[in-house]
Design a protein around this nucleic acid. Sequence first.
RNA 1: GGUCGCGUAGCUCAGUUGGCUAGAGCGUUUCAUUGACAUUGAAAAGGUCAGAGGUUCAAGUCCUCUCGCGACCACCA
Length: 726
Amino acid sequence: MDKNYQPKQFEENIYQFWENNNFFEAKINKNKKTFSIILPPPNANANLHLGHAMYVYEDIMIRYHKLLGDEVLWLPGADHAGFETQFVFEKHLSAQGKSRFDYDRDTLFQMIWKFVMKNRDNMENQLRRLGFFLDWKKKKFTMDEDIVKIVYQTFEKLYKQGLVYRDKKIINYCTFCGTSFSDLEVVDKEKNSSLYYIKYPFVNKKGYIVVATTRPETLLGDTAVAVNPKDKRYKKLIGEKVIIPFVNRQVEIIADDFVDPKFGTGAVKVTPAHDFNDYEVGKRHNLEIIQVIGFDGKINENGEEFKGFYVGEVRKKIVEKLKEKQLLEKIDENYKNRVGCCYKCGRALEPLPKEQWFIKVKPLAQKAKKLVIEEKIKIYPKRFKKILLWWLENFKDWNISRQIVWGIRIPAYKCKSKIPLKTAGRQNSKIEGEWFVAVEKPKKCLICGECDFEQDNDTFDTWFSSGQWPFATLQTLGSEIFNYFYPTTVMETGYDILPWWVARMIMLGIFATKKPPFENVFLHGLIRDKKGQKMSKSKGNVINPMDMIEKYGADALRLSLVFGTSEGNDVFFSEEKVIGMRNFVNKIWNIGRFIYINKYQISKIKNQKLENIDKNQNLKQEIKRLEKEFEEIKKRYLKLMNGYKFSKALGLIYEFLWHRFADYYIEQLKKDVFDGNIESLKVLEEFYLETLKLLHPFAPFITEVIWKKFKGEEKSIVIKNLKNKV
RNA sequence: GGUCGCGUAGCUCAGUUGGCUAGAGCGUUUCAUUGACAUUGAAAAGGUCAGAGGUUCAAGUCCUCUCGCGACCACCA
């Protein structure tokens, strides 16, 4: 044994040993309790980051339950991560001077497929480097044929029950990325906007009404002006008509409660096609919806003279021209507001009317809520229960259509022979044509029976498929596996995707299987740098977990993420902490080395003092004390582990092994060991190895390396039973 | 504006259901070390537990308020 532990000499071989011996493989064993976790599938578009290393909590649980003798399953997978991946891929393209528009749908899809497959292999090997106890034989990908089929079945079932509907309404659309989003993907950014006060002249009398807006260009689509019905200033004007500049449309002044008399002038221009509020007002007052901004971010033919120009340019032009026409009363330059932006590219999103598939969330959320309230699903740490319930109460209908190529194409089809005539340019909110949904593409149109119907070009929001992950993965492995391991025991993930993923898994899981997808939710914190800032490429503070493993070993990295933290709180990561844990691992190694070396030497000494133990009262006492202390430690350890207090369990072992076992007991028994007393050495060895079992879930490599040194290369600590002793 | 979290030793953080002189890692100081480990050992210095009030025999721990930091949510055009 070297003086210092060299993780690189062992880790990859050890992992291979585990994998080759099928230790990771879960089987059906009706006599055993099950413990199952579905790994949150990492996106198959990049290397793992430190956030993924936090899945070490799952490994700790899995390995712990393996030691307890349960039948464990930790199922790995990869997420195609639709929009995210396409976005990453487009960055690669643009680095080569290309863009998504240079390829047809199939070519682009195939290119991304190759890209993803390569990344997926890489990502999986990185999970291995972390030492994760994953059942690789069962690995799944969100775009596997059998998974897609289940996703389709769920969609069809939702559709048949009226929980999926197609509608045309205002959605968040990124004109740069070329797709719509759900509400969750919108990030509000505070911006310095100007507030423009614009005069709308009356039709039937002299004068004008002034409206305040941050988006003067949308006046091209205005179909009303609204005031609060209680506002005395405007009461007499309700019903009066005004003229919208440039487009010369006559619109009415209407009364609606949503108008805040204290804001601006108390009069609001209403653009139902380009504002969520105005859309609602429009519905209440039966206003016309005139879309003036196209999906390319340019003004369309309804914008008359401004057609073909980008929104930003048109804003400037309109402001200039309003000034010329003396229709601009004033500009408040110091106005701040929040603008919904694309969470990926950061540009302002455009609210646009568009036909999409929506999930009616309320009924699904109600059932999910019940599970959480009744604790059929338990949440750890418990403060997240309230947050989860808030979300389940406040979800809006979920837009699941994405206008991107990379994803699972929606199995919805439009009948061609029953498309109504478009109302020229002007749009109403009715959807065009009749649709049907089918898991397998049928031979004949299910609507008219004769047309060559078209499949929807859109793909699913990634979260729609990943929201089905727990049951979809297990169902594809056969009903026996599914029935044995479902519902899974724990869902462990970062608290940042609680609404995106956890809530939706519960909703879709209970809908599709009538059972909760998991019994417990355990949420971990986010990794930040040592100053508490989010790690991001632009800040340059990203730490690559593989570098840490290279330098200090996987055990050290794993321990550094758990030691001295509080579950669910953010982790401030620092290399110094990894070094500290590397030192701990080295300490473990050297305890082993001490016992190992002396064992070897004593066996060569002729007169071993076997009888010493009875005569040496001090020795006898110390051994008894050690025994008692270990039992106490183990009892506390089991309680902490069962209560998801992993950090504390680790702290306990750390303290015991280093500052009690090494610093105290070894020092106490050292003299006897040097005297050739084999009994005291045996005691030390026994308790050392027992403690390694407790440590194994946290530091799987070093514990296995030492186990093999003592018990033989073919042996393994992984499959030892914790209950056998004490 | 709402909700949640945080504010404990120079730094990063623990502190279970309130209970003896408040802990760890790193850092600092002193000493030790030729039979496991300098990626070591022994010891020391260092905290009005953000502030104020309250409950209690007893509060870092429970309650109320204030201040500071952070996160998430919210339709103010």
